[in-house]
Amino acid sequence: MTASSRGVPFLLTAISLTILGLSFNIEDNQVLDPSSASFFPALIAILLLICSLLIWRRKAIPASDEKEDQGSDEGSEPSLPLVRLVSFIGGILLFAVLMQVIHFLLLSILYLFTSMTILNRSRWLTNLLVAVITAGVIYVLFVYIFKIVFPS
């Protein structure tokens, strides 16, 4: 077990306890009254706590990377570099924020071209062409068929 996978049962237990605590604090409700709004969440929280303890006991948290590390080197899956993960998520969040500022079609082309180029730098011209065509087709499809109203 790696340090990160050892932390998972801790996290699960913490989540269960937090939910249990929050269930006890639901306004004007008696947690022991089965028809109240807090009884069912508290029941689930207890179930979560039992499950997290069982997971802890079984030590059944092999991270996929860890399992692959234990296997043979040949054919093992590559792990996703953190920089690529963070930049990809950051790009999506930026897209969501800029949706309200920049015109959707222009932003789509920019987003698609940038992310395709980050993933494969050698074919920037093809990427640009694909980004323009894809964004155009999707824009027409969304606006005229799915009737989506974009903010900008």
Binding site: F88, M99, Y111, L119, I138, F142
Partner: peptide, 18 residues
């Protein structure tokens, strides 16, 4: 995949917005 994955991510954003 370098073409497909950004398109899918883009579709999920628009889908969630829609």
């Amino acid at each position: 995949k370098h073409v497909l994955l950004p398109i899918i991510a883009f579709l999920t954003v628009v889908g969630a917005y829609a």
